[in-house]
């Protein structure tokens, strides 16, 4: 960029970035610094005394059984992995079906993409309504036709299954868009050459198409994990409220509950800081990878 033409103005560029920077500092850096700061203090929720406790808020998370932070962590990982696997497998399958010259191609695409527009919270409501033990159509069907008593507010496996289904249902369309774009960029002559050499459709998929898709797959894996970890709060809040017990209390739900409901500011801030470190690690990991790919 050194030899590129640039406008010469002292004040104007600062004026241009000012709005963005003001908001970045007021709503991002300031609160994040506060989270870090508060995570070292124990605070009376009614604004009274503040005591410096060092890393106690952090060690409390991992040592006090009542906190069940370890359990929350395990549930989050299991949930994010299940959602990523389910949503990506279904999307890859559908994208490979849609990546053929079909007469209704555009129509299919539209009909598979629209759930992206559905709010995560609404996805929760849709599935909650179908599986509501009293009025849900599917809950009724399960009970009267298959003999399965659906009680996701009592049965933690059913609760986990329900939030996984709801979260994956919404995420399929996102993955579908990326897989379809990836599949369309696989050169056709490669596939034809393999076909001439006698490779059947399944073999062609696994030995040629799938490896060529690996950048897309990797990108989506990271994005799906991020989605499962951080963006599914509305589903948990609406469908299970973290229950039964704490069976579906994932990390972002817990940070909200401990802060807003239980008014444990120090503990909630310490959890915020841990979450930030996790997001930063995931982002850095992904950018490293993309950088490497660009260098190829």
């Amino acid at each position: 960029m050194a030899n590129q033409y640039e406008f010469k103005s002292k004040a104007l560029p600062y004026l241009l970035v000012l709005p963005q920077m003001v908001i970045v500092f007021i709503f991002f850096f300031w609160p994040s610094a506060q989270a870090l700061w508060q995570s070292f203090f124990l605070q009376d929720p009614f604004g009274g005394r503040v005591i410096f406790v060092g890393f106690q808020n952090y060690t409390r998370l991992f040592t006090e059984p009542a906190y069940s932070y370890g359990q929350s962590f395990r549930v989050s990982v299991a949930f994010a992995v299940c959602v990523a696997l389910l949503a990506m497998t279904v999307a890859l399958f559908l994208a490979s079906q849609a990546n053929k010259k079909l007469r209704l191609g555009t129509f299919y695409k539209t009909m598979l993409i629209w759930p992206y527009a559905v709010a995560t919270m609404v996805a929760g409501v849709l599935w909650l309504f179908m599986f509501n033990p009293n009025v849900g159509v599917i809950a009724w069907f399960l009970k009267h036709k298959l003999g399965v008593d659906w009680q996701h507010l009592l049965n933690s496996n059913q609760a986990f299954l329900l939030i996984t289904l709801a979260a994956s249902w919404k995420q399929i369309s996102y993955n579908f868009v990326f897989f379809l774009a990836g599949l369309q960029s696989v050169p056709n002559d490669l596939i034809e050459a393999a076909a001439i050499d006698g490779a059947g459709p399944t073999r062609r998929f696994w030995t040629i198409i799938f490896p060529l898709l690996s950048p897309t797959t990797f990108y989506l894996l990271v994005m799906n994990l991020v989605y499962g970890f951080f963006e599914t709060f509305p589903i948990i809040h609406q469908v299970t409220a973290g229950g039964p017990g704490k069976a579906t209390s994932i990390l972002v739900y817990k940070v909200w509950r401990d802060g807003v409901i239980n008014l444990d500011l120090g503990g909630s801030s310490a959890q915020s800081v841990i979450l930030m470190i996790m997001v930063i690690a995931l982002t850095v990991f992904q950018f490293r990878f993309i950088e490497r790919r660009v260098n190829y």
Partner: peptide
């Protein structure tokens, strides 16, 4: 730094 991780502050 999504909102979810810096709610309280």
């Amino acid at each position: 730094l999504p909102v979810e991780v810096r709610i309280m502050p």
